[in-house]
């Protein structure tokens, strides 16, 4: 009987639907009332979803930024592995509601959830 699920997003925005789909899944778990806790960790290429100033409208895609921000309405957390992001794009500006963490903290968070699903 799982009370919590961690969504690990590893795909970048807009080339795949994974990041958007993962955000919607986490949001649905919380809005259902059936699952007590659902948080998101952006890791690997998934950290690129935390970059500020995305303009998905120019490629006609729904906004991953908005999908992630919806999580905040449910007091859920969106975390991003800082070192993975920096390895990819250096010190790019990031979305203010995303909490930067290291892998040690990410492991702690993963361990606090009953289930993990990857996108």
């Amino acid at each position: 009987m799982a009370k919590s699920i961690l969504v690990l997003i590893t795909k970048p925005p807009y080339g795949f639907e994974e990041a958007f789909a993962g955000s919607r899944l986490a949001l649905a778990m919380l809005s259902s009332g059936n699952v007590e806790r659902s948080d998101i960790i952006l890791a690997g290429d998934g950290t690129l979803n935390a970059v500020a100033g995305q303009k998905p409208e120019v490629v006609g895609m729904p906004s991953n930024m908005e999908a992630l921000q919806d999580m905040v309405d449910f007091d859920a957390k969106v975390y991003c592995i800082r070192s993975d992001l920096e390895e990819r794009v250096g010190n790019a500006p990031t979305l203010d509601f995303v909490e930067m963490i290291d892998w040690a903290k990410a492991k702690e968070i993963i361990d606090q959830h009953d289930m993990v699903t990857t996108f």
């Binding site: 009987m1 799982a2 009370k3 699920i5 919607r24 899944l25 649905a28 778990m29 809005s31 259902s32 009332g33 059936n34 699952v35 289930m115």
Partner: peptide, 14 residues
């Protein structure tokens, strides 16, 4: 749907 079905599967799942 995610909300009606997957959330139930998760809650009932091991």
């Amino acid at each position: 749907s995610l909300t009606n079905d997957l959330s139930r599967y998760v809650a009932e799942g091991d």
